[in-house]
Design a protein around this nucleic acid. Structure first.
Length: 270
DNA sequence: CTTGTAACCTGTCTGC
DNA sequence: TGCAGACAGGTTACAA
């Protein structure tokens, strides 16, 4: 479940297990995900101490006292499992700490990625260099968004999914934010009024912040050593709710293009 | 440069 | 029960 809030929740959960710990074993279990896994990952990470964990857009960053940064992306189906009972065929990287905790990066579809770069050149890491502002950061404002969307004719939804415009949104939160702001998903981005952009920016912030809070409870359950399944609370207003009533009473609609679903309310979003 | 579509890969669910 | 088809949170190569 990897959009920005899920990656943020994941990083927070990993922090409790990894931060300050020495990696006793680092074991890649296949050569590639979406990209090749760095061949020297085991050698460079084994014996290193984890100094910190952070997030940029949908990427998680694990830094060590050797000046290396392990960057992971969860793709569509990636997740970290904490102290799993057994290792399965989709567990592609295993980390074992000196205290005996085990973390398994599980990703059945393998759309995720693993990269290893020097901490002092994180900004030069190509996928990072292309990213737009963090939606929860100070650089994401209505004027800045208006400038980025100026004269663009692609649908506003497509622009918000473009990580160069704003970094971290995915299909769920774009649908939610557009509904909260009352904007039709197919409106040409450059034609969205300034008044609506003024609503959109806080809508994006609010939905992400609320999701991070809700995701926290998910990961807490996830981290249980007994492997008990956690709850997954859905607070979505439109995503995954085709046919159900919007707050206004009209049914939530779903439209598919390019194999991607968009959920929206034809009355509330214009 | 901008835009839209196909492809990558596996698992799960639905309907016949 | 079997099986085909739709669908899933992302990114990117490629064509137009």
């Amino acid at each position: 479940m990897p959009e920005l809030p899920e990656v943020e929740t994941t990083v927070r959960g990993l922090r409790g297990v990894l931060e300050g710990e020495i990696l006793q074993a680092v074991e890649p279990r296949r050569a590639d995900l979406r990209r090749p896994i760095p061949a020297d990952l085991r050698q460079r990470m084994t014996g290193a101490r984890v100094t910190g964990l952070s997030r940029r857009a949908k990427y998680g960053v694990i830094e060590t006292d050797r000046g290396d940064a392990l960057i992971f992306h969860l793709g569509m189906s990636g997740r970290w499992r904490i102290d799993p009972d057994e290792i399965g065929k989709h567990d592609h990287l295993l980390l074992t700490t000196e205290t005996g905790r085990v973390l398994a990066l599980n990703d059945p579809r393998r759309f995720g990625s693993l990269d290893l770069v020097r901490s002092d050149s994180l900004d030069a890491f190509a996928p990072f260099a292309a990213l737009g502002p963090e939606p929860l950061g100070e650089g994401f404002t209505a004027p800045a968004l208006a400038r980025a969307l100026e004269s663009r004719v692609a649908p506003i939804k497509a622009m918000l999914l473009d990580q160069r415009i704003v970094a971290g949104l995915g299909n769920i939160y774009v649908c939610e934010a557009l509904h909260m702001a009352g904007i039709a998903p197919w409106k040409p981005a450059g034609q969205v009024s300034r008044a609506r952009l003024d609503r959109l920016v806080p809508a994006i912030r609010d939905v992400l912040a609320a999701a991070i809070e809700a995701g926290g409870s998910t990961l807490r359950d996830y981290a249980r050593p007994d492997g008990e399944l956690g709850y997954f609370f859905k607070q979505w207003r439109v995503y995954g709710r085709e046919g159900q009533a919007c707050g206004c009473g009209k049914p939530v609609l779903r439209r598919v293009d390019g194999g991607r679903s968009t959920f929206y309310c034809a009355k509330c979003q214009r």
